[in-house]
Computed example of a mutant assay.
Amino acid sequence: MKKLILSFALSMLSLTAFAQSQYEKIMTEKIGKLEACQSLDKFQTLANDFDRIGKKETQQWQPSYYAALAYIQKGRMQMRDGKMSELSVQANAADKYLDQAESIAGKDNSEIHLLRKMSYSLKMMKNPAERYMTDGMKAMEELKKAETLDPGNPRVALIKAEDTYFTPEQYGGSKTKGLEQFKTALEKFNAFKPKTAVDPNWGKSEAEYFLSQTPAK
């Protein structure tokens, strides 16, 4: 009987390990596609894919996190294309998944707070003059929370650099200061190691891109 129990226990461990490896394999594939994505339709497809994974892997916060990131990146692409009326739609969709991720990971997750910052920024950009004191201030609060929870988070440094770089000088921005902050972000990316294979690890290529635009001296 003891041998049967031991055999059953080992079989269950093997099945659990196999399921985990399959989960990581699928997630790694989808994350890679998300980081390389340059299409509104594909962002939507990936958001749907992560949604399906999250419904199956109910104890994992990362699928909901990446679904939110897909909607945020979709909104950022629409913003670059001047489709400002769509930004709140994508931000609201992201918020739903961030709530799901937070319900699993807890409220002290720097990565989730950073995406909330990005979501509020999207909402603000629909009408900055009207929304700065509401969504804009909430975005700043979320960024501060993200940095307080993890000062070494390179994505926090990246988004701070973006904000400085793209904000007009009359409102406190500076391309020169932004580039210095991108250097700081890159240093943090070079020192950063995600806790697992599916934890957030995006953003380094963006810091490298902005620094590559600096004229050589």
Rank of each mutant, 00 (worst) to 15 (best):
N153G: 00
D99T: 06
M124V: 11
S121M: 15
L10R: 07
D41W: 13
N127P: 12
R80F: 13
A185N: 03
D150Q: 08
Y209C: 02
E29W: 14
K123C: 02
Q181E: 05
E142R: 03
T176C: 05
I31T: 02
Q78E: 09
A68M: 05
Q78M: 10
P151N: 00
T134Q: 07
K175C: 12
K117S: 13
E24I: 01
T196A: 12
I5S: 09
G136Y: 10
K188T: 04
A197Y: 15
K74M: 12
Y132V: 14
M124R: 06
A94I: 04
M77S: 10
A197H: 14
I104P: 05
R131V: 04
G172R: 02
M125W: 07
E24Q: 01
K96V: 14
Q100W: 14
E187H: 13
Q38S: 05
S174P: 12
L114F: 15
K74D: 06
L87N: 02
M125E: 00
F189M: 01
M77H: 14
A146N: 02
Q59R: 09
M84C: 06
Q73H: 13
D150I: 03
W61I: 03
G32E: 10
I72G: 00
S21E: 09
G173E: 03
S11H: 10
S21A: 08
E142H: 07
W61V: 05
Q38F: 12
P128Q: 11
F192C: 02
L115A: 01
K188I: 06
W202A: 00
M133L: 11
E86K: 02
A91S: 06
A191K: 09
A91N: 01
L34E: 03
